[in-house]
Design a protein around this nucleic acid. Structure first.
Length: 632
RNA sequence: CGGGAUGUAGCGCAGCUUGGUUAGCGCGCCUCGUUCGGGACGAGGAGGUCGGCGGUUCGAAUCCGCCCAUCCCGACCA
């Protein structure tokens, strides 16, 4: 128990948090708790020794950082009213209506006289809905929320509220749950299987390109991070630092790895001495911790799983080739496995990885038009080689620094899959990542039910033999329930098998996304028993291609060149804008403040272009257009 | 850390304004029976320290104070 009783120092603010509470901590709390908080405060000011540098740094950083944020008027249609209270939608649900203000005022002025609408806080939301008609005694006029199945089944339609849709879906599809500590997640079996499938297929690509897996430690001496100036600066605000272990304060605090460049740099310096040792091509599958102030499952959690590749090369050309090769692997993987067509390109200096010379990224478009950075590949130059003294003797007897690269893809990709393909009915999983590619739903009662089930299992065996991940849903639930359930879970193909089908020696196949009838239900296709085992694998491949095409059409429909500010603003409101930009940080900040959009990358496929900056009119930089978007 | 909310059964909520016997409802869960081609039905049943502590009171889920936690928005980020 290395961290037993340890305090964890977090980030920029220099807050001490994560005070470990021994089970039952709540009892006897009051005094003990108050005491604790106070003493924590004392510690913070009183004892500064170790974290000092790290803690102070961000304060400096904070100044040039984008301090200003969007104007007050920025409407955020996609995330207003909150994810509960799906009943009663349709009314004005703005939380910032009159009643709220009164409440706020009351709190501020500490007026003992309750405002007319006083009452328990949780009721106020209701007030909002009817504020206009019932101010005095709102309770009597509250509409009862429509109670019933609608409220518990399915998810809030994505078209209505993407945020709520995403949160509900992650839970209801049993992908993940929130962990007990803030910002942590539990990845449930169905979600973890997606990760395993992603790992398998990505790892194979790493092996195919000559890489080997290894493991490096979770704890890093704090001083290591400080050796590379940009690196510290970049990560200081999100570090978790262990100050105690084995019941004692540590000589030197340990940082929980936010990434492993530093430890790996240290090891490479020991392992590399000759040009004959190069290149070193290593990958690690592990977890990392980056303290998150605003977590979101899969997209931004304090701890997440990923893969980090770290390679060392004799010269820049070799290292750049590696950087671009792995960048290419990610782009290809995203398209061929996750069915997401990415905008691939180089990051602008402001968006570069801390410590990198060049950073390449793949950016996917989510169904709300926002971009998600889904994988990055960095050329680190000799920055880490110098910091960690990674040198080798070359053919000509000269001692040189190696050139290093690093590249990573994380569990965030699962969030990307959810957000890039999902729809109102729930998840849409690309077949190569789907834990269940085809679900067999036997229908019928009594003897007929038995016959359907038996046949379903028999067919499942044939499909398994054909390499299909298949599941028979035997549950004692109505067919409609089961159909909806598997649609929520994103299974690509549903195979129905009832009494009528048994007679006809066929099944009905419904595709999760595809042609629908006038009621919006999938058009079902009859397939003979004999043909099923060859039909399904082919159909899965075709389905994958359909998903890619759909995502591409969606992306293209929401992307375009922006040659003037008005076009830029409207494009970025719902998608990607390719614009000329001056490259100045102040200008990027200004754009971000005005539109919430940031430069995502300079696409590699972009053609040479120059002219005035879309925002400020200064001459453009980069020689190409930059893609801007709102992002996750 | 700034701004805004919320805490009552696994989930979603009512009850609180005006304190008063045993805290309700829907979904889910368990049992039995009937059901099964797009979210079935009936009958039984289990499940609650009302976030915590303190105060006011004969009496607190309800009134008052403090604290804690979580969620949303902002700054950071894969």
């Amino acid at each position: 128990m290395a961290v037993r009783a340890g305090r964890v120092l977090v980030g920029a603010a220099g807050r001490w948090c994560g005070r470990r509470r021994v089970a039952a901590g709540r009892g006897g709390a009051r005094t003990g708790r108050g005491g604790r908080v106070r003493s924590a405060g004392l510690e913070r000011t009183g004892r500064r020794p170790r974290g000092e540098q790290l803690r102070d740094r961000p304060a400096v950083l904070a100044v040039p950082g984008e301090g200003t944020r969007a104007g007050p008027g920025r409407a955020r249609p996609d995330r207003s009213p909150g994810d509960r209270l799906r009943a009663g939608r349709g009314g004005a649900r703005d939380d910032r209506h009159g009643v709220d203000h009164r409440r706020a005022d009351r709190h501020r002025s500490a007026d003992p006289r309750p405002a007319p609408t006083r009452g328990r806080r949780r009721r106020h939301r209701r007030h909002d809905e009817v504020a206009s008609r019932a101010v005095r005694h709102p309770r009597h006029f509250l509409p009862r929320p429509p109670v019933g199945k609608q409220n518990e089944l399915g998810v809030t339609p994505m078209s209505e509220d993407v945020s709520a849709w995403y949160n509900e879906l992650v839970f209801k599809a049993e992908l993940a749950d929130r962990g007990p500590a803030k910002g942590t997640m539990v990845i449930r079996p169905y979600g973890y299987r997606i990760w395993e499938l992603l790992q398998e297929q990505l790892d194979q690509r790493f092996k195919d390109t000559g890489h080997e897996n290894a493991y490096f430690p979770l704890f890093i001496p704090q001083s290591y991070l400080q050796r590379e100036a940009d690196h510290v600066e970049g990560f200081a605000p999100e570090l978790a630092v262990v100050t105690h272990g084995g019941g004692k304060e540590l000589e030197e605090p340990l940082v929980v790895r936010p990434t492993s460049e530093t430890v790996i740099g240290e090891m490479y310096s020991r392992w590399i001495s000759s040009y004959r040792d190069l290149p070193v091509l290593i990958n690690a599958w592990n977890n990392v911790v980056r303290w998150e102030l605003r977590p979101r499952i899969f997209l931004r959690t304090t701890e997440f799983l990923w893969q980090e590749g770290h390679t060392a090369h004799a010269d820049e050309a070799d290292a750049m080739e590696e950087t671009l090769k792995m960048f290419g692997v990610y782009e290809e993987f995203a398209r061929n496995v996750a069915a997401i067509p990415m905008v691939a390109g180089e990051k602008t200096p402001g968006e570069r990885f801390a410590g990198a010379v060049r950073t390449y990224t793949i950016e996917g478009m989510m169904r709300d038009g926002k971009a998600l950075q889904s994988g990055t590949s960095h050329y680190l130059g000799t920055n880490f080689a110098q910091a960690f003294d990674i040198t080798f003797q070359d053919r000509d007897n000269e001692v040189r620094h190696v050139h290093t690269t690093s590249w990573g893809m994380s569990t965030r990709m699962i969030g990307g899959v959810i957000l890039a393909h999902g729809d109102d009915a729930g998840l849409v999983l690309p077949p190569r990542l789907a834990p269940i590619q085809a679900v067999l739903v036997p229908i019928g009662r009594g003897d007929q039910g038995d016959a359907s089930r038996a046949k379903a299992h028999e067919l499942a065996g044939q499909l398994r033999a054909a390499g299909v991940r298949v599941h028979v849903d035997d549950r004692d639930a109505s067919p409609g329930f089961r159909f909806n359930d598997w649609e929520l879970k994103g299974v690509p193909l549903r195979i129905e098998l009832g009494p009528r089908d048994l007679d006809a020696e066929q099944v009905l196949v419904a595709q999760r996304v595809g042609e629908v009838d006038e009621r919006g239900r999938p058009v079902k296709e009859a397939v003979g028993f004999d043909a099923l085992a060859t039909f399904v694998p082919e159909r899965l491949d075709a389905y994958h291609d359909q998903l890619v095409a759909r995502a591409l059409a969606f992306r293209d429909e929401r992307s375009g060149p922006a040659d003037d500010w008005a076009t830029f603003e409207s494009l970025v409101e719902r998608g990607f804008a390719a614009a000329l930009h001056c490259g100045r940080t102040v200008c990027e900040d200004d754009i971000k403040a005005r539109t919430a959009a940031t430069p995502r990358c300079i696409p590699t496929v972009g053609e040479d272009d120059d002219g005035p900056c879309v925002a400020c009119g200064e001459p453009s930089a980069y020689g190409k257009r930059v893609v801007f978007a709102r992002s996750y």
